[in-house]
Amino acid sequence: MNKILGNKTAITLFIAPSLILFGGIIFYSIVMSFRYSLLDWNGFGEGVFAGFGNYIKMFQDKVFLRSAANSLLLGVITLFTQLPLALLLALILTSGVKGEGFFRTVFFIPMTLSSVVIGQLWLKIYNPNYGILNSVLGALGLTSLQRNWLGDVNTALLSAFVPIIWQNVGYHMLLFYTSIKSISQEVVEAAKLDGATGLTSAFYIKIPLIKPMIRTCAIFVIIGSMKAFDMIYVLTNGGPVHMTEVPSSLMFSSIFNLNKYGYGSAISIFIVAECILMAVALQKLFRVKDSAI
């Protein structure tokens, strides 16, 4: 075995397929997008070289700045609502409640549905005329709270975030659940003998032991928010009046509705750079924290 792993030809051979796929499909596209982002180009014919003009324009564009702020806000909100919620559910499920398997499946179901389906579902929930949300508010006598959730510029953004957060709770719960399950029973038993049950066990034994998973999930959540697209596209398509725009939706409409390939490519490069920077920064942050402990 060691002989094979030490063999350079074998290594090349095994790495080649994924390297070719990665290089050809992902890396090449990013490089090409970067090239396009330097052009003033409508997608047809020849583009005119514009240097970093598109990037300068981008940071002066109010709609773009709002979209970037929206995605950051989504990241922060998701981090502080979705992950705690997922962790809570995972802790409850692993504490030996009845119907563990049943609830685990139920919580995971949203994850198995396509975003478009979930988007349609929430469109119906939010519908101002017959949606369940306004109906329930009406039945409770809270008519003053009833509104046009996705159409009102004050509520559209948060209303669009809720399904995104809701959709992925089950996914993170499952990750937490499996890593809690993989904690050695001996550790948990030993803690029990020392009198650590319930909350104490959760806070001093389980959560510290699944820290690596929490870290991974935090990175997933932040990166996921940076490139959020599908749900926004289905729910509001960036409207009303660009209030719910995120960088990806703006990139899409710049390229395909406005024929601004160069500008849209600049936004796509921004998204890539932002995701890489965030991932690196988060990893650094966690490392600093670790060494502090």
């Binding site: 159409g151 509705n257 406005l258």
Partner: peptide
């Protein structure tokens, strides 16, 4: 396309009572 987008988004603003 660009002017058309300003046109349709601004009108959406009027319909949304935002503009």
């Amino acid at each position: 396309p660009e002017t058309a987008d300003v046109h349709s988004t601004s009108l959406q603003g009027i319909y949304a009572k935002q503009m």
